[in-house]
Amino acid sequence: MRARSNDMAAIPTGLAGGVLQEIAGRLADLARTGESAAIDLRSLPMTSTDLDELEHRLGRGEVAARLTLAGASELWETRYSGVWWVRHYGAGGRIAAERIEIAAVPEILVAHAADIAAAAARARCDLGGDASVTDMEPGIHG
């Protein structure tokens, strides 16, 4: 449940239903063509009640993850496979960005080729080898 700082934040506007319709359409596209999509919840004039309703109706699925990078982030798959709720926190624990991703895997979970190459170099170094980051060219991920 979100903190409500005023009475108006408690008003349901009906936007949750509209967003659900859009999610359903995007999910059908993902199933048919594999095209990913995202909906920025912060850009919509949704009240906290709307967001609570959306979160409740989407529910929680099998996967949840917590990320610690430049502050905390959390994400979870909703009860609709391929529909992910992604929430990024900023200073003071406020929600800095929040969006729905319709994708096989949320973009931020996928390790980047540059990070993989750096990790490979570090792993080799940790095991006594002599690889530098520049030795490790991004392969199939790049």
Binding site: L69, H88, G90, A97, R99, I108, H112, D115
Partner: peptide, 12 residues
């Protein structure tokens, strides 16, 4: 700092 952090910042 991972690219995930940069992606998070770009999202923000």
């Amino acid at each position: 700092i991972s690219r995930r952090a940069l992606l998070k910042y770009a999202t923000y």
